[in-house]
Design a protein around this nucleic acid. Structure first.
Lengths: 155, 155
DNA sequence: ATCCTTGCAAAGCTTTTGCAGGAGA
DNA sequence: TCTCCTGCAAAAGCTTTGCAAGGAT
């Protein structure tokens, strides 16, 4: 069964921020960060993760966010994206082996995830034509989400 | 007929760095920048464009590269990409209405362009499913190019 | 007790900007 | 001449890192 990126069971969470810290020490900070990061699901910047994590534990610095996110991405539990701007956005990477793509609203910055088997197949075909060995990919469609198409003026 | 990103006719070039500067002044710097930028084709960072442009005219600063590239991208003549790293890479945007995607070798950083009508169609379909209005997209396949698959050790 | 982590602040990178001098139309 | 551009250098984001203090096992 496929599930959206917006919820994980407590079991998943426990597995993550308790057991899976890969031999590393489980500190309050890491617990707070992984908790808010995996619970909320979406794509967030380091600053956003920081402010959310501080609601759980006020004693957290930006540096620790970056250090923790690096651990998570290095171990395949998170992915860092650079969309249009310089800023990196992080997203959990637990489902579908991380194979999914994005619809990005350029007005409200909403990010919708999708997965399309047929596109994946064609990507592989294109790669084959160029005798290219694909290890990962990214695909982003930019435009306006339903809401922003209806509302003329929204930041 | 489709042509690779690596060559443009002198006519194209003339049109570009002579006439197409859109009412802006044609300075030595802009001429040098557009010349090397459109002639070489590929994807290059601001620093790379700078050093190439300096071979044409030594009196060019990085700031001018950024300012010129901004003009080009704002007018649809170039595209800025943020691939994996923080650094932006610029590429000419003259053919196919800019609709093309990338195969990126993670070992030698070669970037191959491709275009696939069927994938475009499926992208549109996915967007429609989400009632999303697409204005642009990007798609990148990462992996190893033919050469790097054969050569075990290449920077 | 030992080693890993953290916060702070400073440093690093890439990109942007203010300003006064200089070049193009 | 009158703007528009440029170089320089400083500033501005975002991210990383050195270091000494603090916390986890």
């Amino acid at each position: 069964m496929k599930k959206s990126a917006n919820s994980y069971s407590d079991q998943d969470l426990g597995e993550l921020y308790a057991a899976k810290m890969l031999g590393l020490k489980l500190t309050k900070q890491r617990e707070a960060i992984t908790k808010v990061f995996f619970r909320a699901g979406g794509h967030r910047s380091a600053e956003e993760i920081l402010s959310q994590a501080r609601e759980v534990d006020a004693r957290i610095s930006l540096a620790t966010i970056y250090r923790t996110m690096k651990i998570l991405t290095d171990n395949g539990l998170a992915k860092a994206h650079r969309f249009k701007d310089g800023q990196a956005l992080f997203e959990p990477n637990l489902h579908e082996g991380g194979r999914h793509d994005h619809l990005i609203c350029t007005r409200c910055n909403t990010i919708i995830e999708f997965f399309n088997e047929e596109i994946e197949r064609l990507q592989q075909m294109v790669a084959d034509e160029h005798k290219f060995l694909v290890t990962s990919h990214r695909m982003e469609l930019y435009g306006l989400c339903t809401i922003c198409q209806k509302n003329p003026n929204t930041a």
